[in-house]
Structure formats: structure tokens, C-alpha cells
Amino acid sequence: MKILIVDDEKDVELLFRQKFRKEVKSGVLELAFAFSGEEALKVLDSEHPPKVVYVFSDINMPGMSGLELLNQVKSHFPEIQVSMISAYGDSQNYEKAMQSGAKEFFTKPIDFESLKVEVNKLIESQK
């Protein structure tokens, strides 16, 4: 199962790879990374149909914001689930994300325990 993580902070990749080290090693999970909304869309567009089933995206990024990416993904790849990760856990962002069809809304600093729960639910459902 492949998930895509979108964040303009590149160190996020290292962090996720270590956090899901066992899952990746055992082959149940495949991680892909993009550092902007535009790059994320390119990654999704590179495979037809895309292998990615879940996108975790930061909201605050230069250029296309996470919320715009959410709309784009939902309109082009409605089957892919999207959850938002934001440093600004305000209700305005939360409501916008939920209205646009986001599955979950995580606030930074990322609570990897709840994130893992979400990913494990996903892995279970894929089996």
C-alpha cells in the first residue's frame, strides 16, 4: 500500500521513514514524498491508475496550499483519501478541509501514535 506525504520541510521524509521503518521493511507500506502541492499532483499523475491510496498533506506551503491540493486531488482522484496536517489548528482551516472532503485533520507537532493508528486502519482495510 502506498501513501504520499506532502510537506515543504524536507526532513519530514527522514522522520516518516524512521517512524514507519518496520512497516516499510515488512513491505506492507510504501512511502512517497512530495515537497509542494504541484509536485504531489505530478507524482499522482505519473501512474494510471495511481498506486497511492492516501495523501497526508501540510496546509502551509509556498505556491499551492494544502487545501488547494485537497480540492485538486478530490476532483481528479476521488478514490484517494486525503488528510491534512497543519501547524495552525484553527477552526477555519479545519472546517475548510472537512468541507472539501478531508478524512482527518492532524495538527503539528505530529502525533505519530494517532497517525500510526490511522495508517494501520488503512492497512487492515486493504487486506
Partner: peptide
């Protein structure tokens, strides 16, 4: 605030994951 929060998050996250890695 945003600019400080980001590196602080990384400091926290990397410390946390490092503790886990030691166990592993």
C-alpha cells in the same frame, strides 16, 4: 512563531523517534 515551531517540532520528533530506534 511558525518558523520557530517548525524546528522545535523536528527536535521533538527526532528525539522521540531516536528513543524508539534505540529500542529497535
Amino acid at each position: 512563531a511558525h518558523e520557530i515551531q517548525n524546528p522545535l517540532n523536528f527536535v521533538n520528533n527526532f528525539s522521540e523517534v531516536s528513543a524508539e530506534l534505540i529500542d529497535e
